[in-house]
Nucleic acid binder design. Structure first.
Ligand code: NAD
Ligand code: NAD
Lengths: 228, 228
DNA sequence: TTTTAATCGATATATTTGTATCGATAAAAA
DNA sequence: TTTTTATCGATACAAATATATCGATTAAAA
């Protein structure tokens, strides 16, 4: 009964987004370390490796329910499976991709997605030159077939790698077809019903931080030079 | 004198990172709206479009120094140029890319980067089959040439699209060569000197949020069904 | 066996980020 | 011209996130 109660608790208490976003980083690191046959790792070591605060690491890991041993740290395998389970990376979910251009092709060819809970099973495009071709073993189908295939194959994830102008319409087709979550690589903000999950892969956001920070750095360096 | 003082202020006061990360979104939206020849836009409209809070939008935009007009809102062109200036998107910075694989090729072929302050001028790889080939008009060079070329061309930005195992070594080559900022697409956390800027394009982080959120949603839906 | 020291994890505090309130302003309507 | 109203922007408040403190624990050293 108590067991049950705590399970419900776990489901209700949402994981803070910053924590959730650090989980993949932990998994990457832990998988790398496991190859070197380390068994235990301390929060301080993780913090060192990822340049985080060890207290923050401990707090993040507390969410997994994995308990650490004083003087040793955490069992790496336990952490990996707990984290993978939370992200649902311990089994892959099928996905359809729309927009078989250059970025789409890169995603279609990426072998590691199965480690990250994703399995791209079909690609769609509206360019007659692309339809019928095969990219990394995945056939490119006409967009018209999208709806039927989603229903037939019970696919939940849609990936948009089409140009921004087309993205909103594609999102609407996806929602209509029963897609529950959209991974959006276009730069526009998609408008979808509240119960549909949208996650943006914001490349230009990341680029913006880079270009801004760099320009501030260079400005400062010039200012220092001028003072001398 | 006062003018000068406020300029120093501006340089010293760092822009909050969440705000900075919203700037590209604003730019994307504003550029789209400008095409429709709208001149003014209110914070409430922006908030509506991007599903943000209008107060937050106003606070973000306040940082640009652009002042809005009551009852009308902000001048779109003014906002675009102020935001672009902060991100340094109003002139492009040259960049070198290392790892001319599928993701690298997608980046090399992406025409819009010049709108986002980036200009990829050369690509490097260590695969003899790739060296000498041309991708989207950019020649792939042997990694050995990296150092010299950076010095000669005074390039500040390095992009890593090589496998994770190679990424740290490549980062070290970049730092040695004088690269100041690294855009990292590999999943590992790069260790570089404190004064080098690293910005990670965390695709798997974004994917993790998606797969987790979807699995929670599906779990909840099943729980509801079972209760009936 | 006893001591030492690294680590965990609970609780408390600080910082950052987001949201609400409200008077001032100026465009548009009356 | 006067009134109305949408919006701005300053200030105050709330929530989320990060960091600090410290006793409890246990592996390893003495
Ligand atoms: N390539 C990059 O490096 C990069 C970087 C950042 C963002 N993006 C974004 O990712 C998306 C894809 O970029 P890309 O470089 O691969 O572009 P691309 O032009 O190479 O590919 C786009 C593909 O979408 C297809 N398409 C167009 N309209 C469609 C529609 N209505 N239905 C179905 N398919 C349609 C096109 O036929 C094409 O195959 C764009 O939104 C772009 O802004 C790309
Ligand atoms: N493709 C994707 O969709 C995707 C998604 C998420 C993350 N990533 C990451 O992006 C990176 C690139 O992925 P990809 O799919 O393009 O891989 P890829 O194998 O297609 O390309 C990697 C390229 O790097 C080159 N390379 C390898 N070692 C090198 C070295 N020491 N010096 C210079 N070049 C070297 C290879 O020759 C190859 O051309 C990887 O780190 C991957 O984990 C890719």
């Amino acid at each position: 009964m108590l067991e049950n109660e705590s399970n419900i608790e776990k489901e209700i208490k949402m994981i803070p987004e910053p924590t959730l976003r650090r989980f993949p980083q932990y998994i990457h690191l832990l998988k790398r370390l496991r190859k070197e046959s380390t068994q235990y790792i301390s929060s301080t070591t993780i913090a060192d490796e990822l340049e985080l605060d060890s207290i923050q690491v401990r707090k993040d890991l507390a969410i997994t329910g994995v308990v650490g041993k004083p003087k040793l740290g955490f069992d790496i395998d336990e952490l990996i499976s707990a984290l993978s389970n939370i992200l649902n990376w311990d089994n892959s979910t099928d996905a359809f991709l729309v927009g078989a251009g250059s970025l789409g092709s890169a995603l279609l060819g990426y072998k590691n997605f199965n480690q990250y809970g994703l399995n791209i099973v079909a690609a769609f495009d509206n360019d007659p030159n692309k339809i019928g071709k095969t990219i990394s073993g995945i056939e490119v189908l006409p967009l018209e077939k999208f709806g039927n295939m989603v229903e037939r194959m019970k696919v939940h994830i849609g990936i948009i790698t089409a140009p921004p102008e087309a993205a909103q319409k594609i999102a609407e087709v996806m929602v209509q077809s029963g897609i529950q979550a959209i991974w959006n690589f276009s730069s526009i903000h998609l408008k979808v019903p509240f119960n549909i999950i949208v996650e943006d892969a914001l490349l230009t956001q990341s680029l913006g931080v880079l270009t801004h920070t760099l320009s501030e750095k260079l400005k400062k360096e010039i200012a220092v030079l001028e003072k001398q």
